[in-house]
């Protein structure tokens, strides 16, 4: 992540938007299509079953609410990490970045607890259509969270080594775009799976 590379990476394209930022947004657009397909399939399956999901499809609302809160907090720490890096406050930025990765890990920990409880009760993806949808939607989302955690930890290490500074802080914005997208996906998955 040399300065020369950082400068070239921040060049604006003909659209007036930095090429790397435009690239991330186009990637996110394809990700929106991916999750839209999954969520759309879930909605149609659900509409075709009036009694959906039935008493056997119970999910813990308090646990889901706590996990949603964790992810909302992580979005705030992510954007604060970028804001602090922009201001040249390295220590605070690193702290917020690490906190974001820890909160993401906590989210995955809670999700692992939920999964293990379901498996303990003999509930698997093959149990019925609801659980197939649940494990597919939350599983793919969890993989995206894991990707975000790895990315944030990578940038945290780079910041610790002094390779991520105010001059190339926009890398954090790009990482943040992905992290906030993952948060938005969960913002819709939570009510669809746990509340309604």
């Amino acid at each position: 992540m040399s300065d020369a590379h950082a400068v070239s990476a921040s060049h604006e394209s003909a659209t007036g938007i930095p090429s790397n930022k435009l690239g991330v947004w186009l990637f996110l657009a394809s990700e929106i299509m991916f999750f839209a397909g999954l969520i759309g399939a879930y909605l149609f399956l659900r509409m075709s079953h009036p009694a959906w999901p039935g008493p056997e499809g119970h999910l813990s609302v308090p646990i889901g609410t706590a996990n949603t809160f964790i992810l909302i907090c992580s979005s705030m720490t992510m954007v604060l990490a970028y804001a602090e890096m922009q201001r040249g406050r390295q220590t605070e930025a690193q702290r917020y970045l690490l906190l974001t990765a820890l909160l993401g890990s906590a989210f995955l920990g809670v999700k692992a607890y939920e999964y293990s409880a379901k498996f303990h009760h003999g509930i698997f993806p093959k149990t019925n259509v609801f659980w197939s949808c649940y494990f597919t939607l939350t599983g793919f989302h969890a993989l995206h969270v894991l990707g975000g955690i790895i990315t944030n930890l990578y940038f945290w290490i780079q910041a610790r080594r002094g390779r991520l500074t105010v001059s190339n802080a926009y890398y954090l914005e790009l990482s943040g775009l992905y992290w906030h997208f993952v948060d938005i996906v969960w913002i819709f998955l939570f009510p669809l799976l746990y509340l309604i």
Binding site: S75, M78, V79, G176, L177, D183, I184, I187, I196
Partner: peptide, 18 residues
């Protein structure tokens, strides 16, 4: 409830995603 989720998503995209 889904409308509230949409408002939350817009807030995240508008402010956190700049």
């Amino acid at each position: 409830v889904l409308g509230l989720s949409t408002v939350k998503a817009v807030l995240v995209a508008w402010y956190y995603m700049h």
